[in-house]
Each structure stands twice: as C-alpha cells, then as structure tokens.
Design a protein around this nucleic acid. Structure first.
Length: 626
RNA sequence: GCGGGUGUAGCUCAAUUGGAUAGAGCAUCGGUCUACGAAACCGAAGGUUGGAGGUUCGAGCCCUCCCACUCGCGCCA
C-alpha cells in the first residue's frame, strides 16, 4: 500500500515491524498473501518482548500448516536487523520481538521534532463534523457539552493530521418551534432588544406547552403500536389548545415571506442565544465560532428539492397525505414531508448530508449527536444512499457516521438533574467546575513549598479554570462514547488517579524540572534542547518511557480512524505513568554524568511535548504551574 | 409488541477489534520524602466477564436462546 508507506512515520517501530513481517509472509507463503495482516501488537507482558506478532496462527489455519511451524518459518525468513533482536516463537505460534536498545534511541531521535511521530493523513478530502447543534431560544444542557467537546476533540485530531475540517454547528434556528417562540414573545409584547437566554427559554417552554396538537400523530402511533409512553405523551399534548399552533404557523409563513420586522426579531433571537453559547465556548476553550454556524435555516431553500428528487426517483411515495421514503428491510418508513406540506428535520438532514458530500466534498461526515437518535440517522443515511447523494465531486463515496454518545447520569444513575429536579444547565455546570478547580489550586498554593505559592490571584484563577475544565473534559472523553457516564465532580476533579488534573500535574512537574535545571522550555511542539547529545537508554524505566513515546503517532492515527478519543486518554495516562516511574527511578538534574543528564533532559522534554500536544488534541489546557 | 444499546473487582471504567496469567483508578491494607513538585511512587488484597449452550488451537469479544437495566418506535427536533 503506497499511501501507507508514505505516511509511515520513521519513528514508529510497529509499522516497520509490520512491513518486514509482511514481506516474510510473502516469502514463505507466496504473493497471494501480500494483504495478510501480520497482527503486530505491543506485548502486554514484558516477558513476551516489546512487540508480538500473532498473524502466524490465523495463517496456519488458512493454509493448513501447523501454526508453530509456520511461525518458525516466518522468523527464519524475516529481516529485522538492525531494528530488533532475533524473534522468538512461543506458545501456539506467537512471535515475540524485542527491539535493540540502540535502535530505540535512534527511533526517539526521529520522533524528536515538531511532528512528534504524527504523520499526515493521506486522504485529501475534508472531513465534516456535526457538533454542538444548540437550539435557538433553548438553554444549553449537558448533552450539548458532550457533543461539543467530543466533536471538538475529533476535529483537532483530524487537523493535527493535516485534514481540512468543517466544524458544522447545525443550529436549531428554523421551523415551527422557532416560529412558536417568536409568536409567544410577540404576544407577550416583549422588547426583543433586551432579551436574555432564560427569558427565551421560558418563552420556548410556554410555546411548547401551548401549542401541542397532533391528532394524526396520535392516530398513527396507535395504529402502529407505539409504546405506552409515547401514546400518553401525545394524548397529553392533544389536550392543549390548537389555536396557538395555527398562529405560529401564520408567523412562520410571514417569516418565510421575508417580513422585515419578524426577520429582525428572528435575528435578535439567534444573537441572544449565540452570545450565551460563545460565552460557554470561551470557558471551554472549544474552537467554534460564527464561521461554523450553518443551521437549519441555511437549508430551507433546498428542502423542496429534496422532496422532488425523491419523488422523481420514485423512492418516495405519498401515504396518508404525507410523503415517506420506504425501506425494504424495515416497516417504518422515513417521513420527509408532513401532510400539511411542512418539512421535517429528516428533510433538513437529507439536504445537509447532500450538501456536505457534494458541495463541501467531505469523504467523512461525522455526526456527534446523542445515541437516542440512532434510528433517525440510520434512516437518513440509508435514504441518502438510495439517492447516491453521499458522493464527493471527484466520485468518492463518503463515509457517513453517527457517533451516538450515551447520556450523562447523576451519581444516582438517573439522568442528571439538580436537587430541585430541574435540568442542569451547561452554564451552571461549567461554573461549578471552574469554582472547584480554582478552590483546589488556591488551597494548594497556600503551602509555602508549592511552586504556585505567591502567584497573583488572577493567575491562580486562570490555572483553576484550566484544571476545572480539564477535569470535566477528561472525564467525558476518557470512557467509551457509546456508554452512559456518571457525572461525579468529586471524582473527576480529584488530583489522584486517572483524571485530567493528574495529566496536567505530570506536565507541570516536567516544566518545573526545566526551570530548576535552568533550561528554557521550547514553544510549540519543537524540541527545547538541541540534539547535540544522543539519547542513552539504559534503565528499564527509560526504555519503557521511550517505547511509550514512540507510540504517539500511531495512537493519533488510530483515534482518527476509529473515532474513539478515550484511546488517546488511555495512552496519555499510560505515558504519564511511565514518566512518573522514570522520574522516581532516574535522577535527571542530579544524574551521575553529563551525558545521562542531557539524555534524560531530552526524554523529559519529549515527554512534555507529547503530553501537551495530546492534551491539546483533547482540548485540555496544560498549565506550566498548578 | 418490534428494534437498538448496555451488563466486567465493593464503586467508576479499560481490554489495541479472536490472542498468552481479563487490566487501571478510587476505596481498603502495607511500605517510600530534612523533596530534580508526595497532586507522586512501590506493593498487597479484590473476578464463574448477567446466565446457559455453541463455533476453534484459543472467546469478555463471534453465533443461538434466556435474564436485568435503558433508549427509541410517521406528521416534534
């Protein structure tokens, strides 16, 4: 695979071992096995060497050879010098590989530049990441937090590998709900220039309560055997007045018709919501701004075209006055136009996928939206594929992915609520995180021996914010996205264990060594020290640290492939651990001789830069003192 | 009723996609500082991976059937 060779980092031993073993497999079994995966993995247990190759066993089964014998023949054929020692066959057919100490030092040398072993992604197409997606006039809550920070982290990973990323904030800024809020506020006679988000949120709720009426929906739900919850919900809605919704529809028609006053008020609504959003994003250090806004209203003129195209392709049919797209493998179709002629969010999503592949040219379109919408995206993606709309201008089939993340639960394992039972707003959650982080930092700065002792209060508060936000983000990103997770501020803010603050601490401690040693820290990802003195890898802890550092590029590539930020978290935690052990066992400043001291300083420097870079990919700041 | 997700140590979570003895962190117990930052390190203890079958050299992971919890299921987004 030439593209893979191009992107092979010189510093990544695993990729190089794979290439060599692949060659050996071809030499033993013939060219038809050129695509066979040698299955090279870092060894779990030091007694099995640094890496192990597990491919011989599967190939043994395929070819009918004895796995152990095949493994031995691969070992005889493989050329790993000077990278590794002679491999050993063990167990049913494992091949254990130990790197030569000299080559570990050489690989480190190759990783010690501004790339840190990270390689460019060979795919030249942009990536679209749909994230955040706040609703106008609605209070942001913890669900938006997840979507935003997961999406931002993934975007950073792609950008780090030189992909162009379109962060798409698909604002809920159009349609009947917005019209209802507008109508509600006008009825109340509100001054649109003095709105704030709580007032908008209240109007939103009032409008929702006043305007639910859904006879057809209820009938359909009954007919199709919807769950009892859904039926009850719809019945309750039906008890409300129907007049409001008619008025809101008239408001929407006026807005669509370009009514000047309404249009101005609509923009005021949006601006008010966005001001609050930008506020939260600034605290969170999420790279998202006005340039990323492409809400539902952007697609409003494209919606009729969606219906027409499906109709023309005979992929949609009328049903009970509505327009639906049926699927072969499931009974429930996708509803794309209501019986009253109105469009739905599915219609908008169809238009959006089409736009993102065909006009933005994205080869991956990634939706970071909570898991409850899994069925919806399955339907939308399948409908898009029926139309073949998921194609870039140069004909590449775009991968459509929904990253359905789990819910945020309280420590009682139920959806996160305040003590009074209200939804937790994003803002209150962020305020608490910053407050807790600041309190911890200030408390420790009280210790006369602490490096933060005597820092100006303003600086301590800034560090406290970084710690609080780092804690929340790391807690969110460090477990598997699909699972629900328990939000426990006490646990995540703790400075012990697998937390954001622990990683920040490891980073700060390295910075401290440099100030003690009188060596200036570099800026950016480049090395702080000149590379005059070579790496010397002698102690076990040095070797473990070195091997961990060499994995960084592969981890970043991996996270971009499988879209699982928690792997990066696990890696960084492992790196911080490897560093702590090294730090414990290997004196740096007080090393026995100058060559060792220089080598260890370089190890510290490289570790610091990888930690800082990895944390940056997670969107977590890395203060130099804390 | 149909469909999806989840189930791993007391608690919170991993397990490189089928690999060797299932790993971490909290909490518990025991060691390490007149300090290159102890916000750390080293160690101990803790498991029938919800249950039962099956596939194979090998299963937490794949297949079948159960159980529990949870989310979703046409005119909201």
């Amino acid at each position: 695979m030439p593209s893979e060779t191009l992107s092979t980092p010189a510093s990544d031993p695993q990729t190089r071992l794979e290439a060599a073993l692949r060659q050996a497999i071809v030499a033993v079994l013939g060219p038809e096995y050129a695509d066979a995966d040698p299955v090279v993995r870092p060894s779990q247990n030091p007694q099995f060497g640094d890496f192990q190759c597990n491919g011989a066993m599967a190939l043994g089964k395929q070819t009918g050879m004895k796995p152990r014998e095949l493994a031995q023949r691969i070992v005889d054929a493989v050329e790993l010098a000077p990278l590794a020692e002679t491999p050993e066959v063990a167990g049913p057919g494992f091949i254990n590989i130990t790197l030569r100490t000299e080559s570990v030092a050489e690989l480190l040398e190759a990783a010690d530049d501004e790339h840190l072993g990270v390689t460019p992604d060979p795919d030249p197409h942009p990536v679209v990441i749909d994230l955040c997606a706040v609703n106008v006039a609605k209070q942001m809550h913890v669900g938006h937090l997840r979507s935003t920070i997961i999406g931002d982290a993934l975007a950073r990973v792609f950008e780090r590998r030189d992909r162009l990323v379109h962060r798409e904030n698909h604002l809920g800024d159009w349609g009947l709900p917005i019209a209802m809020v507008l109508h509600q506020l006008r009825e109340e006679g509100r001054d649109f220039s003095t709105l704030d988000l709580p007032a908008l949120d209240a109007a939103y709720r009032a409008a929702q309560l006043g305007g639910r009426n859904d006879e057809r929906g209820l009938a359909a739900a009954r007919r199709l055997g919807a769950g009892p919850h859904r039926i009850i919900e719809l019945e309750e809605q039906n008890d409300s007045a129907a007049d409001t919704i008619e008025a809101a529809k008239r408001t929407l028609v006026k807005l669509q018709g370009g009514d000047a006053e309404l249009d101005r008020q609509w923009h005021q609504l949006i601006d008010c919501t966005l001001a609050s959003l930008y506020d939260a994003l600034a605290i969170l250090e999420v790279k998202l701004g006005p340039e990323n806004n492409r809400g539902e209203s952007f697609y409003r003129d494209r919606l009729p075209g969606v219906i027409d195209a499906f109709a023309a392709a005979k992929l949609a049919r009328e049903d009970d006055g509505a327009m639906v797209v049926p699927f072969e493998d499931r009974t429930r179709p996708l509803l794309i136009r209501k019986s009253d002629g109105g469009f739905l969010y599915a219609t908008t999503d169809l238009a959006a996928v089409r736009f993102r592949a065909q006009e933005l040219g994205a080869s991956r379109v990634i939706y970071v939206v909570d898991a409850r919408q899994r069925d919806h995206f399955r339907d939308v993606f399948d409908a898009v594929r029926l139309m073949d709309w998921h194609r870039t201008p140069d004909g590449v089939e775009a991968e459509l992915v929904h990253i359905g993340f789990g819910s945020v639960l309280g420590t009682d394992k139920k959806p996160l609520k305040t003590r009074s039972g209200a939804n937790v707003t994003l803002r209150s959650l962020l305020d608490e995180a910053v407050e807790r982080g600041t309190a911890e930092v200030q408390r420790r700065a009280g210790d006369p021996n602490a490096p933060t002792h005597g820092l100006p209060d303003e600086e301590l508060r800034e560090i406290g914010r970084a710690v609080g936000i780092g804690a929340v983000k790391y807690a969110d990103l460090s477990n598997d996205l699909v699972r629900d997770y328990v939000f426990d501020m006490d646990r995540m803010i703790a400075f012990e264990g697998d937390t954001g603050p622990y990683l920040q601490y490891a980073h700060a401690r390295i910075c401290s060594i440099f100030s003690k040693a009188g060596v200036a820290l570099g800026s950016g990802r480049g090395p702080a020290l000149d590379a005059k003195t070579p790496f010397v890898i002698a102690a076990d802890a040095e070797r473990t640290l070195a091997l961990t550092l060499l994995r960084y590029g592969a981890v970043v590539a991996d996270v971009g492939r499988v879209l699982e930020p928690h792997r990066l978290c696990a890696y960084l935690y492992e790196l911080a651990n490897a560093y702590s052990s090294f730090y414990q066992q290997c004196p740096v400043i007080k090393a026995d001789d100058e060559a060792t001291r220089q080598s260890r300083l370089r190890l510290c420097d490289l570790t610091r830069r990888v930690l800082a870079d990895g944390l940056d990919l997670l969107g977590i700041p890395a203060p130099r003192r804390m």
